[in-house]
Simulated scan of single mutants.
Amino acid sequence: MLMPRLGDLLSRKAPGIRAQLLDLVPRHHVESLERQQADLALLPDTDLPDWMMREPLFRSEYAVLARRGNPATKDLRHGERMPFDIFCSLPHVLFAPHGDLTAQSDEALAKVGRRRRVVMTVPVFSGVCRVVSESDLIGLLPLQLARKVQPVYGLDLFVPPIAIDPIQLIGVWHRKADTAPMAAWMRQQIFDILRPLDRIDLRGLAKEANP
């Protein structure tokens, strides 16, 4: 969602700049910023040390992904709320950088006495997309990303059967870099690209099931 637009922007406004996207291990982002190995990290809102600056960017709800033609979802309309029984009976692929087998959705399901079947974990979001697009597994992705990849991978999107707390994405950086002109300029370009994503929510997806 970020790098293609950022690449286009930099090629026009600052062709001499080189941007490097690093896949930081989530639990090590503080260490990477402390050593100034990265100028900016994008991550879900969390407690941070005092020397880190933060900027809220956008909130993201979750969408259920299934391949178009999945026999278990063929009678559901794109954008419809997926029934509990289908959601819990189908095998799931889970985005889990550390190999965890549970996430926020499992906590929400447990509160109503339900559980899902996680049969595979992958360390990157693109892995969820590829697995879902070529199998009968389903998965959950942040809605903004799901919207972006849906036509590329031939997916249908559904509203989850239960409310899942949205994630708040923030940008964080070292206080020492707060006033550095080039770092500040780059942060602003990135923030301007990401902030409009806050306007995408599940209400828009649900309307597509009942136009």
Rank of each mutant, 00 (worst) to 15 (best):
L21H: 06
L22K: 05
L24Q: 05
L24C: 07
L24G: 04
P26D: 02
P26K: 09
R27F: 04
H28K: 10
H29Y: 06
V30S: 01
E31K: 08
S32G: 04
S32W: 07
S32R: 12
S32P: 00
L33E: 05
L33Q: 11
L33C: 08
E34D: 14
Q36R: 15
Q37F: 04
A38S: 13
A38W: 03
A38L: 11
L40E: 09
A41C: 14
L42D: 13
L43N: 07
P44R: 11
P44Q: 13
P44K: 12
D45H: 14
T46W: 00
T46A: 08
T46I: 01
T46K: 03
D47M: 03
L48N: 06
P49Y: 03
D50N: 05
D50R: 11
W51K: 03
M52R: 06
M52V: 15
M52K: 05
M53G: 00
E55T: 13
E55H: 15
E55G: 06
L57F: 07
L57H: 08
E61W: 12
Y62R: 15
Y62L: 13
L65E: 08
R67K: 14
R67D: 00
R67F: 06
R68D: 11
R68H: 11
R68I: 03
G69S: 07
G69W: 09
N70W: 09
N70F: 05
P71F: 08
P71Q: 12
T73K: 12
D75I: 02
L76E: 03
L76F: 02
L76N: 06
R77F: 11
R77G: 12
R77W: 09
H78L: 10
E80V: 01
R81H: 02
P83N: 02
D85G: 00
D85E: 12
D85F: 00
I86P: 02
I86T: 14
